[in-house]
Design a binder for these strands. Structure first.
Lengths: 327, 327
DNA sequence: TTGTAGGCGTTATCAG
DNA sequence: CTGATAACGCCTACAA
């Protein structure tokens, strides 16, 4: 790799001059500039970001920490973040935390070791020392934080809507699947749903689950019907769970939505490819990722941020795992 | 952030000594060592990787370039890579190329600018200058390259198997969906399928598609049946396409697999959650990602590599979009 | 308008 | 066993 020195030699000037044309600051004679630019081209020179980063004490890198990229919801967030970042010349160091504090800490550490200028994280504990102690901007994505910048969907409202819709469409024995206890958005959805069910004095039961993994989803789906054989409406903790439930319902010969209605959460891309397509609560994941990136960039570049808690609203997507009803 | 100098001051030694205890090389008295270690703890010091990287001219970073993390196949690759890398203390700079040469080049450039020690890339053109000119190891993932390190599944064989299975199970008017022309693995599958269909003198037609995006998939799915209304067996270019076809078949009142059989490709996680679950050609994506990472690490750390083209075999997963048949 | 030199945080070399 | 110090590639005073 050619260095700035090589370019300087080639062009017969000092490194300072090359640096000036590189960064477009300071005065440099037009002739000198073109000479330098030519040498840059000839040598195929690109500045070493590491040296830059060392000198300036900051890089063009952003740390992105997501629970698990294999969960279909997160790629959309990730892609939103990536697109916005790449358009603004930032790059991503990416890690999966598996909702584990240990992995999270390790990644945060390597982020700072690599001089990242900002972090986007889906954590369950925004108030942990590792974040409060950071002296670079952090945006929490898909996680709520009242006092720190965050971008999230209104999960509680989503839970409420799901409950309202399923009751309105005639389910009399609702099962609410409660996602992993330590995953905050899952709990919010759950609470929202229960809130409405209580209000309406509807009959409901709860099934606790401990993971979002696909294999577990199938097990939990079986449990739904074995423990509550007469349930006729299921509010799932996400679309994976919902899909597993749909599948299990079919396996048991139940008709969807005639015998049992099912509502998911997230609206992952494949939900509408299911047969029947899944009714679900839509989160604008890609756009949330982009927004988190925008917010972070604003923070990094020192714009005055008027609003740093951005809540996206969610929306019921009526497809075919819920019954039709007059509006 | 504390620097090595701060630690040295605290401990009353020189930076050289601190560096020695940090890296565990050179002699250092036991008492000195513990003094230093204590200062490290007290100051909560971690070495600046950027400075390290500058001096050593190499980092602990790997560049990972995938076409599109929103396509459900790639997160599995990505996660495999990430897990293996993180266990070996490497971190990932991640980018989406969208199969675009331009984005690809931009990323490769920032990879080298950031002193990455290796690259894993899903490219359609392993022989492009940007790769041949790199002086760091590159592993091509999900893409074939005869003369350069690569990890991929036997797509041609997959295509063959799909064709054999669908014919064997009684389809008489097969439609082969041909994926985007510039995506190599898609073409290999296609060629494999056609090869067998020709051999067996089976009746078949081809539907060309131009993208793997979800919305397009639905359009193409409609086209399948509008252009070939009497088709009774469809070999899809991947599971997304296959799901869209299943859905469209249902919409048209066709029974699957009685009226029309469908075989996908990839075996993404959700394939088995579909109703009916999708028969498909399984690629061990997660394991492929891990293997690519292992291979790359080997290359980086200068092991003598005996075999640098790793082909994974694929396998037919019989689920319920194909008919049962005596074996 | 251009060049010199010091410093960013580490590591490695070479004296002591 | 330990300490100066040069060097990694770049940027920015400051001088010229």
């Amino acid at each position: 790799m050619a260095t700035i020195k090589d370019v300087a030699n080639q062009a017969g000037v000092s490194v300072a001059t090359v640096s000036r044309v590189l960064n477009g600051n300071g005065y440099v004679h037009e002739d000198t500039r073109s000479k330098v630019e030519q040498s840059i081209r000839e040598l195929n020179y690109t500045p070493n970001e590491v040296a830059r980063s060392l000198y300036k004490r900051k890089s063009k890198l952003i740390g992105l920490l997501l629970p698990d990229i294999m969960n279909p919801y997160f790629p959309q967030l990730a892609r939103g973040v990536e697109d916005e970042m790449q358009e603004n010349d930032y790059r991503l160091i990416f890690g999966n935390s598996d909702e584990s504090k240990k992995k999270e800490m390790e990644y945060i550490q390597t982020f700072v070791q690599n001089n990242v200028v900002g972090v986007i994280s889906s954590t369950n504990d925004p108030d942990a020392d590792m974040y409060t102690g950071l002296n670079i901007p952090v945006v929490f994505l898909d996680r709520t934080s009242s006092d720190r910048p965050s971008v999230y969907a209104d999960g509680r409202q989503g839970g409420r809507i799901a409950a309202e819709e399923i009751v309105r469409r005639g389910s009399k024995a609702v099962t609410v699947i409660q996602g992993p206890a330590d995953v905050r958005p899952a709990q919010e959805r759950f609470e929202g749903a229960v809130e409405v069910l209580e209000q309406q004095a509807a009959a409901y039961q709860v099934l606790k689950t401990t993971s979002f993994s696909l294999t577990d989803a199938e097990e939990f789906a079986q449990k739904v019907f074995s423990e509550y054989p007469d349930t006729d409406g299921i509010i799932a903790s996400n679309d994976i769970m919902a899909s597993a439930v749909v599948k299990e319902a079919f396996r048991l010969g139940k008709r969807v939505p005639e015998d049992v209605q099912i509502i998911g959460f997230d609206d992952i891309l494949l939900s509408r490819l299911l047969a029947p397509p899944l009714s679900t609560i839509h989160q604008p994941a890609y756009e949330m990722g982009r927004e988190a990136a925008r917010l972070l960039i604003g923070l990094i570049e020192g714009q005055r941020i008027e609003k740093s808690n951005i809540e996206f609203s969610v929306e019921f997507i009526e497809r075919q795992t819920t019954r039709k009803v007059e509006s």
